[in-house]
C-alpha cells in the first residue's frame, strides 16, 4: 500500500462550502513545508477541485509509473531560504518537499464538469488512496475534502480506517467561518467526526474580519468569535482565527508577493512594510514588478501576513500529533 510509509494523515473538513478548506489546506501545507516537513496534498473534491489552482500548477499533468500515479511536485526539498523574518521558526529550517494529487490534473480541460454519481466517486476516492505513489517517508499527508458528509467522506473514512494504523491517522482540522449559518453546518461535521471516531485536532475560524487595505481598519464581514464558542461547546481545541487577507488572494491568483500599507496590524503584529510609502502597489495601474512575481510560492508566502498565524497553528498541531504518538 502506498499509504504505508506516510507518517501522519490529516484531514481538512467542513460541513459548509466556500469557507476556505482548500485555502487552509494550502497554507497548512506551505507552512509545514517551511518548517521542514515533507508534505503531500490529496484533493478529493471531485466535482470542484481547486488545489491545482491554489498551488499554481493547473497545467501540470500526473505521470503514470509502474504501480501507480506520481503526484505533481510543487517544489523539492531545499536548503533554507534567506531569512526574511527572524521571529518565526521557519527561518532556520530547510524546506520540505511538497507534492499534490487532484482530479484536476487528470481532466483534459479545466472547465470540464465531472458529473458523477456516488458509486463512481467512491471508486475514484479509493483509487486516489491506493494508487498514488507518495514519496517515501512522507511526514504529512493533508487531505482536502468537498463540503458535506456524503459519498466522498464515507468512502475516505472507510478506506482510511481499514488500511491505516491509528497512529497514522492523526485526525481532522475543521474549518468554519464565524457566522451562525456556517457554524450550524460545521456542527454537523463535528458530529460526523464523533460518529466515525475521528479525532478533531482543532477548529480554525477563517474569514474572521477583513483588513481594509486602504485604512487598515479591521471589519468583521462575517461577524466574529463563533468558531471559538463552537469549539468550546464540542470540547475540541480552537486553533485560531484567520482574517481575510486580499493580499493572499492576489498571491494565489496572480503570484504577487504580498505587500502591506504601513500601519497594518494583524494579530498584534506590525506587518506593514516600513520602506514602502505607497499602499499596495499592485492593481492600481496593472503594473507589477518582476521582483514581486518571481520566486517560489513557498518563499513568497512568507511575506504574507497570514504566515505567522499559520506558523503558530502548525506548531501547535505538530506538537499535539507528536505527543499523541509518544503516548500510543
Amino acid at each position: 500500500m502506498p499509504l504505508d510509509t506516510v507518517k501522519n494523515i490529516v484531514l481538512v473538513l467542513s460541513g459548509k462550502g466556500g469557507v476556505g478548506k482548500s485555502s487552509i489546506t494550502t497554507q497548512l501545507a506551505l507552512t509545514l513545508s517551511l518548517q521542514g516537513h515533507s508534505v503531500g496534498v490529496l484533493d478529493i473534491d471531485l466535482t470542484g477541485p481547486s488545489i491545482p489552482r491554489f498551488f499554481g500548477i493547473e497545467d501540470s499533468k500526473v505521470r503514470q509509473a509502474p504501480g501507480g500515479w506520481i503526484p505533481v511536485p510543487v517544489h523539492d526539498a531545499q536548503a533554507p531560504l534567506s531569512p526574511r523574518d527572524s521571529t518565526t521558526t521557519t527561518a532556520q529550517n530547510s524546506i520540505g518537499a511538497l507534492s499534490c494529487m487532484s482530479l484536476g490534473f487528470i481532466l483534459s480541460s479545466r472547465s470540464d464538469a465531472v458529473i458523477w454519481r456516488g458509486p463512481k466517486k467512491t471508486a475514484m476516492v479509493r483509487q486516489f488512496l491506493s494508487d498514488v505513489l507518495w514519496p517515501d517517508n512522507l511526514d504529512y499527508l493533508l487531505i482536502d475534502t468537498p463540503p458535506g458528509t456524503s459519498d466522498e467522506h464515507i468512502s475516505l473514512l472507510e478506506t482510511l480506517l481499514k488500511t491505516c494504523t491509528p497512529s497514522q491517522l492523526s485526525g481532522a482540522v475543521v474549518v468554519t467561518t464565524p457566522q451562525a449559518i456556517s457554524i450550524s453546518d460545521v456542527k454537523k461535521e463535528l458530529n460526523f467526526c464523533k460518529k466515525v471516531g475521528l479525532r478533531v485536532l482543532g477548529v480554525v475560524e477563517n474569514m474572521a474580519g477583513f483588513i481594509c487595505p486602504n485604512c487598515s481598519e479591521c471589519t468583521n464581514v462575517f461577524s466574529k468569535g463563533g468558531g471559538e464558542i463552537m469549539a468550546k461547546e464540542f470540547e475540541v481545541p480552537f486553533l485560531g482565527s484567520i482574517p481575510i487577507d486580499p493580499a493572499f488572494v492576489y498571491l494565489i491568483e496572480e503570484g504577487i508577493r504580498p505587500v502591506y500599507p504601513q500601519g497594518t496590524v494583524i494579530a498584534g503584529k506590525e506587518v506593514g512594510s516600513q520602506d514602502q510609502e505607497k499602499p499596495t502597489s499592485f492593481s492600481a495601474n496593472g503594473h507589477v514588478s518582476k521582483e514581486q512575481t518571481s520566486g517560489l510560492l513557498v518563499d513568497k508566502y512568507r511575506s504574507c501576513s497570514l504566515s505567522p498565524l499559520f506558523d503558530g497553528i502548525v506548531s501547535t498541531l505538530v506538537t499535539d500529533i507528536a505527543s499523541r504518538r509518544a503516548v500510543s
Partner: peptide, 19 residues
C-alpha cells in the same frame, strides 16, 4: 466589492478580486 464601513474611508475593496 466591499465598501469599508469606516465613514472616513469608504474605500471599495475587491475582497475577492476579479483577476
Amino acid at each position: 466589492g466591499f465598501v469599508c464601513p469606516n465613514k472616513k474611508c469608504g474605500y471599495v475593496s475587491q475582497i475577492f478580486r476579479a483577476s
